[in-house]
């Protein structure tokens, strides 16, 4: 082997080793610095200043901040955090840099308003954000929808929600269901069906993966809630008829109370507990469910969102 060959081999080996080593170290640094870059957000007193120092590349910077917001929420959510302090400033900076980034407002409505651990629990900031979006994009009916959604779901302010849907229905090219929503608010506020319509609309009007997954989980939860209530009613009916609790689901079918053995959105049959309660087979799969959970059930550290 010549000296030159030796050098080539040594350098190649060293290069590969260094490349691997640096990638591994980078992972360590990233773990350490979760959110460390984001700390900068706290030092930037005003998004306006940032806009000035971006030297005309606001669009790019907005995309960067948008990614940071999504990453931040995703990471915190995975860790089942109950504090999302930086979500609001990140979204505010993003939208200040690019006021037409509609998905950022939708993200705010979906994750800024709900109480922890599903969101930051800041409905007021969410409303501010979406209103800012409406001022900058008055012709986008989706923003009015997001506003109505926050009022309905998180503020339980049905009048406010009705007003928002009503405003949105007047925008040219608005989806016709905005009018229906406005009417629905007045008559059927608080009903499962209304909530379902809203989540379906959310699911259909966005392409953001996290928002869609969130809406889907809510829809699944609504279905479970509805079906469990229905099944528990059937159990009570059986009790009235026979004087004792049903020994199994099939007893309900035999008694002609149920047309067949019902299954949950995962495809598993619902469980009939000895005390007459109904439970889902995999409670961890239904993070937003109110009913059908074992007594004293604690959600897992990492919530499952379906995509």
């Amino acid at each position: 082997m010549t000296a030159a060959q030796r050098t080539t081999i040594t350098a190649s080996v060293l290069l590969t080793a260094c490349m691997l080593g640096s990638a591994l170290l980078l992972r360590r640094v990233d773990q350490m610095r979760t959110g460390a870059t984001l700390q900068d957000v706290l030092y930037i007193s005003s998004p306006k200043l940032l806009k000035r120092v971006s030297l005309g590349y606001e669009g790019l910077l907005a995309d960067i901040y948008w990614t940071r917001a999504v990453q931040y929420f995703g990471r915190k959510h995975m860790a089942y955090s109950d504090r999302y302090d930086l979500l609001a400033p990140l979204l505010e900076i993003t939208t200040a840099l690019d006021p037409h980034l509609i998905v950022a407002y939708q993200f705010g409505a979906s994750f800024l308003a709900p109480p922890p651990p599903d969101g930051a629990g800041m409905p007021e900031r969410a409303i501010q954000l979406v209103e800012y979006g409406i001022r900058n994009n008055p012709d986008d009916w989706k923003l009015y929808y997001d506003l109505g959604f926050i009022y309905y779901m998180d503020k339980k302010d049905y009048a406010g929600a009705a007003a928002a849907f009503d405003r949105g229905s007047k925008v040219p090219n608005a989806h016709p269901f905005m009018k229906i929503m406005a009417a629905q608010m007045a008559q059927h506020a608080g009903e499962l069906e209304t909530a379902r319509m809203l989540w379906v609309a959310t699911y259909q009007t966005t392409e953001d993966r996290q928002i869609r997954a969130n809406a889907l989980s809510h829809l699944r939860a609504l279905r479970v809630d509805e079906e469990v209530a229905m099944l528990e009613k059937a159990v009570a009916q059986y009790g009235q008829k026979t004087g004792h609790l049903p020994p199994s689901m099939s007893a309900l079918v035999v008694a002609g109370i149920l047309p067949g053995i019902p299954i949950d959105p995962d495809g598993h049959p619902y469980k009939l507990m000895p005390d007459g309660h109904i439970e889902v087979r995999q409670p961890d799969d239904f993070p937003f469910t109110q009913k059908g959970l074992p007594p004293g059930y604690k959600p897992p550290a990492t919530p499952k969102l379906r995509e």
Partner: peptide, 22 residues
């Protein structure tokens, strides 16, 4: 970590330069 990272990355780039230059 930063020190180690910088050392490794620098060594990597210098090795690359050596390989090309060689």
């Amino acid at each position: 970590y930063n020190t180690l990272y910088a050392a490794l990355y620098t060594a990597m780039a210098v090795c690359g330069a050596v390989l090309i230059f060689e």
